[in-house]
Each structure stands twice: as structure tokens, then as C-alpha cells.
Design a binder for these strands. Structure first.
Lengths: 200, 200
DNA sequence: TGTACATCAGTGAACGCGCGTTCACTGATGTAC
DNA sequence: TGTACATCAGTGAACGCGCGTTCACTGATGTAC
């Protein structure tokens, strides 16, 4: 059998993607070097040509998610002007991100990721804080534009915003996709919107 | 050294409590039979006199949490009449439960618990559904009493209610207790209450 | 255009560690006489 | 009240499995001449 060789940038990308797929499909626990290697068509030790160890691989996966998460905020800010509509779209993107990459909640809620590694735990926390901070900025902007109640604490609103989608994600996850996450968020959003919007 | 012997009912309780403490302090990953045995003052194989295996032990821990969670709802329903106040108190109890047993989010969000075990995953899901169902009942009751907006879907409100505390728990957890969970919930609650309450 | 060589992606065998679990045993405890 | 015995909680050594990682190697690929 002829051996396929590819450049390491390509492989790094391939391996990270494969890791995400495995996590999405079977969870962090099933992410092992042997299965990962099989998925990209090589032998376990081959992975080590492209990542120093499993830790470095997890870092890459985490970075990818952080990038996607913050990318959503940037996209929304670039395409939409109205703060409330920005939030609505962001919520929608977030749900779709979860449905697409079931990996997101599985990684965020897994000790496997930060288990011992204090450093990575910090990274994860910073990523979430960065996301929340962006959402809080949108809220502040909405207050400046007199669309969102001025007396509300933007950080609190941002965290509540996250709360719209998070329990849904877990329930969806526990029910093996049976629970209709999109529908819940669709119903919850108007309630949330009316709660923060200035009364007309 | 003289060997201490205790009845198995006592030991089962001791071991389950020790497991909870370990999970709370160091997470699911650090819950192993050796450490657990050390904590209750015996040798690893000794555990097997009281639990058939680790699975049975995890079931016991899960059952304990389910009991505490549903117990909170029952307590609130027994002591308070007003539905909105019931929710407020329930929220408070929930936060305290998490602060006291950091184990709660760690278990709920851990694949370690249901990893392969489809049966236990179902149990966990049912426990959460049971909790949500009770909360939805409170909401319905509030609608009957004309305190909560009649057009709101009780299940949606129940899940949003859970969303008040859940992201907080994760942030608190990731920040090693630095993040002030109680304060966030204290701020978020009135916003949520005004969102579901009938306008005066 | 063809050849020699250096580079480095991929191999396969082996190691070591953590950890759940088994099993023959020991000896403390409660009970029957 | 004291003694013999059955019960069963606790012991300690050993096993086996999964899994991350190492290391000497092989041979495909791109490059210099």
C-alpha cells in the first residue's frame, strides 16, 4: 500500500477538524489518539509529527471554537445596525453553531479540557469573558440608542443572553437531539427582548 | 493497626458523600476508587463490599443530587404560596445548592457520568425534565392566579428560569469561585420577574 | 531531462502509567448455646 | 457470664485494559546539480 504524505499545515488542519468531529459525534471521552489517527488515515504515532502531544491538539481545537464564537459577534456587528436585531441574529448564529458543531457544549462542559491544565482553563474562561464582553457592548450601544432600558446592567443582560441558549444546549445534548433547541430559543427570544427593551 | 469495621448502610452513605466531596473539590476526573477508598479510610478493594462497581456508585451519587434538586421544589411549594415568590426562593436555593455542592454542575456537565452508559444518561435527562416540569407547574399556577402573563409558554419560561442560573454556574466554576454567582442572580432575577409578570 | 541527496511525513513495535476490578485471605463482631 | 462459631467488612497482591507517548526505521517528495 502506498503511503500518502501531506504537508504539515494541511495535516494540522485535518487533524483538528477530525478531532472536532469525533467530539461532536461521541464526546470528549472518545477522543483518543488511535481513533483520531484512524480518521485521518494514519497510525497513532503519526499525529506526533504535527502536534507535540494531545494537549497541543486540544489547544488548537479550543482556539478554533473561540475563533468561531467571536467570529459570530463580529459578523453580526458588521452586517446589522440595530442592536436588538444584532442580538437576535447572534442568538440564531449561536444555536446554529451548536447544532452544527455539537462539539461546542461538549467541550465547554468537559473537565477533560481543562482537567488539570490550569492554563487552558484560563484560556477557556477568557474566551467566554471575551464573548460576554462583546455582547455587553451591544447592550450598551442599545442603551445609547435608547432601545434598551438604561437602568439594566449590561453584564447581567449579557449573561442572561447566554442563559437563553445554554440550558437548551444541554437538554438537546442529553436528549440526543430530540429536544427542539431552535424552537425553544425562538419562543424565549421575544420574552427576553421585551424584558430589556424600553417600553414604547 | 486495628481495623475499623462498619455496617454496609453506613459505609454506602459515607462513600457516596466522600465521592461528592471529591467531585466538588477536584472534579469527576479525580474521582477514582483509590482516592475514594483513602478518603473513607480503607483499601480500594474494600469499596467493592458496598458497591458492586463504580457504575453503581455513580448511580447513587446521581440519585442523591436528583433528590436534592426535587427536594428544593417541594420545600418551596410547601412553605410559600405566591408563585413568583416561590420562583425567587427556588432560584436562591438552587444557587446555594451549587455553591455548597460544586459537584452539581460538575456532574451535570460531565460525560464521565453518562459517557457510554445510555441508561444513566436517560436518568439524568429525566431528572432535569422532572425539575423543569415542576417549575412549569409553578408558572401555570402563577398564570391561573393572574400574576404571570397568560400568553407565555410555561415550559419556555421554566427553561429560561434554568438559564438564569446555569451560565452563572459555569462561569463561577471556570473562575474558581471568583465570579460572584449570587450577585449576578440577584440582579438577573428582577429582570426576569418583570418579563413574566402581568403588567400592573 | 535525469540523477543524487536531504528532508521529513508516516510506520510499527514497545513502554509505562492510571485505574477498575478480582480473589483468596484475615480477623473483628454479633449471636447461639 | 463465658465460649464456639458463622458472618462478612476490610486486606493486599495481582491482572488486564485503554491510552498517550517514544524511538529507530522507511520511503515518498522536492530540490540542487
Amino acid at each position: 500500500m502506498s503511503i500518502v504524505k501531506l504537508g504539515t499545515e494541511i495535516r494540522r488542519e485535518q487533524i483538528a477538524q477530525a478531532a472536532l468531529h469525533i467530539i461532536a459525534a461521541n464526546g470528549m471521552r472518545k477522543l483518543n489518539m488511535a481513533g483520531l489517527a484512524r480518521r485521518v488515515g494514519m497510525v497513532p504515532s503519526g499525529i506526533y509529527r504535527h502536534y507535540r502531544n494531545k494537549d497541543e491538539l486540544l489547544d488548537a481545537v479550543l482556539e478554533f471554537l473561540r475563533h468561531r464564537l467571536l467570529g459570530n459577534v463580529a459578523a453580526v456587528q458588521a452586517q446589522i445596525d440595530d442592536p436588538l436585531e444584532q442580538l437576535q441574529e447572534l442568538l440564531d448564529l449561536h444555536v446554529r453553531l451548536i447544532l452544527e458543531h455539537q462539539a461546542l457544549p461538549r467541550i465547554l462542559f468537559s473537565e477533560e479540557v481543562y482537567g488539570d491544565h490550569q492554563e487552558r482553563k484560563g484560556k477557556l474562561r477568557d474566551a467566554i469573558h471575551a464573548y460576554l464582553s462583546e455582547v455587553a457592548d451591544i447592550v450598551r450601544n442599545g442603551q445609547v440608542k435608547r432601545q434598551i432600558k438604561p437602568e439594566l446592567n449590561p453584564d447581567t443582560v449579557a449573561l442572561m443572553f447566554l442563559g437563553l441558549v445554554q440550558p437548551t444546549a444541554i437538554l438537546w445534548h442529553l436528549s440526543d437531539g430530540e429536544f427542539d433547541a431552535a424552537k425553544h430559543v425562538e419562543r424565549a427570544w421575544p420574552i427576553f427582548r421585551e424584558a430589556i427593551r424600553v417600553n414604547l
